[in-house]
Design a protein around this nucleic acid. Structure first.
Lengths: 336, 336
DNA sequence: TTGAAAGCGCTAACAG
DNA sequence: CTGTTAGCGCTTTCAA
């Protein structure tokens, strides 16, 4: 009604209701039970209503020291993996907390932004050690996906070893021995682990790891397609019959590039990856991939963070399953 | 170092540097130019460094009245459309603002949460009129995608009419006359418009609108697949040769369900939709869809919000293109 | 060039 | 049951 009028404060309400601001505070915070008479309570409520008063969250935060907000640090919200993760977090957090999205690579710069942001809790994948140290003892932090190297910081992750092993064995069982790898260009622990674990398994089975150039690209369909296109000649020359991608998004790029190059999947080349995004069952052909439920990860991480914020120490880190979904991008290599 | 020690405040810095907190404030805010002697400035900086002082954002916000934060209200962050949108917003906002994600249907409840959240600016698709009214004159708001009905509130949208018309004409040109529609279950203006506009065009061309039951489902692959499966018998009975979906995500579900039902796309049925998410070029077969760049929408909306927050009145609303991408899910109907 | 002091709006002891 | 008072930590006139 009053348009851009001055903000209504507790003082205004107190004046109108003929009480003190303390009473207003008690009433609006639902702490009136047995501390404020029903009659005064009604008066206050009426005044609140009439004036359209809402408590100022900033002032409340300063006074109480609790911000009711959680920061989620993700490198790329456009990647469905992280948007699923975000959804999981939001679902668990509900309305009780504000969710601040910080889009930054927590392993590099921009740390400042993260550390300055005074939130009640934080969720981050692969935070730099500085960040962990700086936050430690002040702001509860839950690390996502892989434990922070060199620390025993609370985290929630996947049974990645299982998934990687399963995928390696699947390819091996099909008869592939020369396998290429398309890695993500950000060397976060989860990506390091995916590659290293599979490499290890290949060594154990056939005496050597991945074949041909180790390619890296941004986690982005176009970038991955380009990377594949550039690498394909070398891979083919090296006798590669399958390529594993660090993430589904990379695999999408590979699928597209392969189609354009006339490389038939899975006839000429098997393709597999990690994540199992909802679209991976719909690609042409449907993608074989290790299922990593980002939504569950977010949900459980938020859960753990909530307990941490209550002061409860972290129990054993929940390990979420990572199981192979075999679809149609993997078949035995052509027996030329 | 000190673990959970007390927070370092400006008072601590002031004491160590032998100055007043006012001076500390000037220095840390870069307002020292000509108001603080270089020598004192150095002392303060040294003290800040030694103590590891960082200004408390909450206190600063309360004192200045500016929160440096923007809220983005989205109904479902797991939908790639909204994650692209979010990315666009984040890209434009940069580091200067905190991005608070509010996951809620702004047309229904949860409004309270939105209104209470005292941010500097807000972005929302299809906000309820109450929200607009309550925010008006206090918090700048940019409406996304479609103008808020019955108001002239600033917004950023697409040339949806063009896209819908183009799609209708494309189907008509191919020879389809009996076309089914799978709508989103949230009746936001953008979805209403997509359907209504196409319906109108069909009427003009063939004397009737969509054929068969009007189906609605959540914007979710599984839900859409179920909805299609349930509707298919009726649609087929009605002679439907093409179905248009309100969003790509619905189309993904239709594609999957059609495959399972043995309905060949596009042989038996043409499919098309709106959005053109990055995955839509990779589905089997690649999807014909009206391209709506959510990322651009977010970017431009954030841009407009920024100018609004500076007090500049909104100029004419930017209209982003909506052009049809013809791929492989649409062909002429079988001439049985 | 610097400091004192008055808020910003709310909460939480502590009296009464 | 209710009011007084003292902060929360910072910014910002206004004097000195």
């Amino acid at each position: 009604m009053d348009g851009a009028g001055r903000r209504v404060t507790a003082v205004d309400v107190a004046r109108l209701a003929q009480v003190s601001t303390a009473t207003v505070s008690l009433v609006v915070n639902g702490k009136a039970r047995g501390r404020v008479s029903p009659a005064t309570r009604e008066r206050v409520l009426a005044a609140v209503d009439e004036l359209g008063y809402r408590v100022d969250p900033v002032a409340r935060e300063l006074a109480t020291g609790r911000r009711h907000s959680v920061a989620l640090v993700v490198p790329d919200i456009a990647n469905p993996y992280f948007s699923q993760l975000t959804k999981g977090v939001a679902d668990r957090l509900g309305c009780g907390y504000r969710l601040c999205l910080i889009i930054a690579d927590p392993s590099r710069a921009g740390l400042d932004r993260i550390v300055t942001e005074r939130v009640d809790g934080m969720l981050a994948e692969a935070p730099a050690v500085d960040v962990i140290r700086e936050l430690d003892g002040r702001t509860p932090l839950v690390v996502l996906d892989r434990p922070a190297p060199g620390t025993d910081h609370p985290y929630v992750g996947f049974a990645l070893a299982d998934g990687a092993t399963e995928l390696a064995d699947h390819l091996l069982d099909l008869g592939h021995t020369r396998i290429g790898y398309l890695d993500a260009d950000i060397g976060t622990p989860t990506f390091e682990f995916r590659r290293a674990r599979m490499d290890e398994r290949l060594h154990a089975a056939v005496g050597h790891g991945f074949t041909g150039p180790l390619v890296r690209s941004r986690t982005d369909i176009d970038a991955a397609a380009e990377a594949f296109t550039a690498a394909w000649d070398d891979w083919r020359a090296a006798g590669v019959t399958a390529v594993v991608c660090a993430a589904d998004v990379h695999a999408y790029g590979v699928l597209r590039a392969a189609a354009r190059l006339g490389v038939h999947v899975p006839g000429d080349l098997s393709v597999a990856s990690f994540d199992d995004l909802p679209f991976s069952a719909l690609t042409d052909p449907p993608l074989t991939t290790v299922r990593l439920s980002a939504g569950d990860l977010g949900f459980h991480a938020a859960e753990l963070l909530l307990t941490l914020m209550q002061g409860t120490p972290a129990g054993p880190p929940p390990l979420l399953p990572a199981t192979l979904q075999i679809r149609s991008t993997t078949t035995p290599p052509k027996t030329t």
